[in-house]
């Protein structure tokens, strides 16, 4: 059905105003990151002179590159771990029928009700006890197993016709090979969704990196930003904003690229 022009205009107006309101904090930050400190102090919105000084300073003041690298490593580790572990678990829940499976599935659901934040104290002690504080594994390990990821993939795997499994059984293919050569390739889209989601949430983690890192060698960029912000005085807002942009831009790009896929995947995993 074609939309009448008046409706179209009002819809676009609504969309534009909403988009502006949603995006305005990011726009301000973006503009400010190119401002000199006078402009910032005066509370200007658009810089009178565009400068990259703030970025240079941010990278000088903190080992931001190292932090970015740390974040990347941790996020990749978590992402890959989640893909492997959730796909294995989801496979068992879909293609293997055995006694106690439903009980184990319930156990997985139960993990969603236990907030990580409520159990940080023992987790901190555990990771400390394993001598994994200030290491990438220490940062990643608690997040590798995920019930959400398992559900998402279970949903996808369930849509694979069971005849594919049966045909492979007749051909003489075992479970692990079927998982590798059929299930994973067929479920590629969902794996990408989970990878995106896993990477995004890992990159944006705050509390755990704050607790489990004490030095710059493994500190993630989020905690770096906190450091930058708490060191800075008012007149150096530009530097802080530059830091914030450095932190936010990789995930923003990732989100923009994968938005459609993420939206589809999340809706499927969350709801069925």
């Amino acid at each position: 059905m074609r939309m009448p022009l008046s409706k179209k205009i009002s819809l676009y107006t609504l969309l534009t105003v909403s988009a502006f309101l949603v995006f305005v904090p990011i726009i301000f930050a973006f503009l400010m990151s190119f401002m000199n400190s006078q402009d910032a102090m005066l509370g200007k919105i658009i810089p009178s002179v565009w400068t990259l000084d703030n970025y240079v300073k941010a990278f000088e003041r903190l080992p931001l590159l190292k932090f970015l690298f740390n974040s990347l490593m941790t996020s990749l580790l978590i992402m890959i771990g989640q893909l492997v572990l959730s796909s294995l678990a989801a496979y068992a829940f879909v293609f293997l029928k055995f006694k106690g499976r439903d009980a184990l599935f319930f156990l997985f659901i139960a993990t969603m009700m236990i907030p990580f934040e409520a159990s940080i104290i023992p987790n901190f002690q555990t990771v400390k006890g394993m001598n994994l504080l200030d290491t990438y594994p220490g940062l990643a390990l608690p997040f590798l197993a995920t019930a959400f990821g398992t559900f998402l993939l279970r949903q996808t795997f369930k849509q694979i016709p069971k005849e594919l499994k049966e045909a492979s059984e007749i051909a003489g293919m075992g479970h692990f090979k079927f998982y590798l050569t059929v299930v994973l390739p067929v479920a590629k889209t969902s794996l990408v969704t989970l990878a995106l989601y896993g990477f995004l949430t890992a990159w944006n983690m705050y509390l755990w990196p704050l607790l489990s890192t004490t030095n710059d060698h493994v500190r993630t960029v989020q905690i770096g930003l906190k450091q930058l912000q708490s060191q800075e005085t008012v007149n150096q807002w530009g530097v802080v904003m530059a830091g914030a942009m450095v932190v936010a831009i990789p995930t923003l790009i990732l989100l923009f690229v994968g938005q459609k896929r993420l939206q589809k995947g999340l809706a499927e995993g969350a709801l069925k």
């Binding site: 005849e163 049966e166 390739p185």
Partner: peptide
């Protein structure tokens, strides 16, 4: 019945 062809 559904042929069970591997889509990939």
């Amino acid at each position: 019945q559904n042929y069970a062809l591997y889509p990939h």
